[in-house]
Nucleic acid binder design. Structure first.
Lengths: 207, 207
DNA sequence: TCGTCTAGATTGACTGGTCAATCAGTCGGC
DNA sequence: GCCGACTGATTGACCAGTCAATCTAGACGA
């Protein structure tokens, strides 16, 4: 948001957006630490100082990017968690959102995963509460399923939440750094495999 | 290793070791980027310049720490992979090594996980080959089990390798940042849960 | 219709501080 | 007196953030 009190002009909003979009590209290309504020300004076709007109600091730019997208993911997760469907479907939907998010905007998701979610020392520290919320959604789904007798109850739900995201983020890292093929078919396949791998170990074996 | 050609004096080796040990403590406390070379020297009780006598750069110190420990983990993994035992036992042993490693020297493992293994942009990039070797060991075990008909074969072994480590590293991060209790009993419990969670989804259900 | 006033938008040179790495030199054992 | 161990002040590069100045576009009175 502009630091100004009154309404910004429409053109101004475009510049602000341009800065954010440019930041995604540059962060994705060079990583947060290696990008200078000048790089962002150049990429956005904007003067250096304008970045500071719209954002308190370089860090604030990153925070804005993270929050914009993460709040969408959390909202989607909330929806799934409270909806109907089998636990397996719910967990599958959560993995699906994340993979879709990556397919829709790989650069942004790359930045979020690499610089925030898995960067426990820098942004990860700062945004821990929001990140944990996502783990908790998975844990909730598992706990509900355990209470309903659908999942075995000798595995701690919080534990599953962390493992589930750990696995998903690792796969995403694999795509990001081109260790694994990131073609369209792979996403659906990956989703199925995560669900199969985790739910397979959780569902009760008897009828 | 000292940059000198001839054999270093015994006392000199101590100083080198002191620098490495100090670096672990400081990296663990402040993170790699936030620690100055002066911090390492101070912590080691040694002059600033001596760090550069023994190491080419600050980065070289980190690399040495990582390589020292990681090669042990890889060797242990190799042993397990080629040994006898059920796939479940083998996977359990791999998780066990890592958790034991953390229990034995939490600060070093913290640094390795946070600054290398999960830091895909900095050291993770540089040491990718060694890191992948660890994933591949898990993948190998899974592939063998599939060939032996013990694990279902519709889940890609490489995929399991990444997921397995993803889950383990996430749990470690949890301990590191005190999101989860890190008491002794927890380690064994965690090991059992990872194995149960992953193997449960892999083992064939029929007799 | 025009001047001019105002407030936000935009610019980029500059500052202040930080640190990795260097280097010229001292010390001590052999 | 040689050689490696050791010292710490200095240097040189880098860069986030500041700031003073300029530029617009609409508001509003005459």
């Amino acid at each position: 948001m502009p630091e100004s009190a009154s309404t910004p002009r429409p053109a101004a909003i475009d510049k602000r957006r341009a800065i954010l979009d440019a930041a995604v590209r540059v962060f994705a290309r060079q990583g947060y630490h290696a990008t200078r504020v000048a790089d962002i300004a150049d990429e956005a076709g904007v003067a250096y100082g304008l970045v500071y007109h719209y954002f308190r600091s370089k860090e604030a730019v990153m925070t804005e990017l993270f929050t914009e997208r993460w709040s969408l993911l959390l909202a989607a997760g909330e929806e799934v968690q409270k909806g109907t469907g089998t636990p397996r479907e719910k967990l599958g939907a959560i993995a699906g959102f994340i993979f879709e998010s990556y397919r829709y905007d790989p650069e942004l998701m790359k930045v979020i995963i690499i610089e925030v979610t898995r960067a426990a020392n820098s942004f990860g520290r700062t945004h821990l509460p929001e990140i944990r919320q996502a783990y908790d959604q998975v844990a909730q789904i598992v706990a509900d399923a355990q209470r309903a007798g659908l999942f075995r109850d000798d595995i701690d739900p919080d534990f599953v939440g962390m493992s589930y995201y750990g696995a998903i983020e690792q796969l995403l890292s694999g795509w990001v750094f081109e260790l694994m093929p990131g073609e369209d078919a792979e996403f659906e396949r990956a989703r199925e495999m995560v669900v199969e791998l985790i739910c397979g170990g959780l569902e009760r074996r008897d009828g």
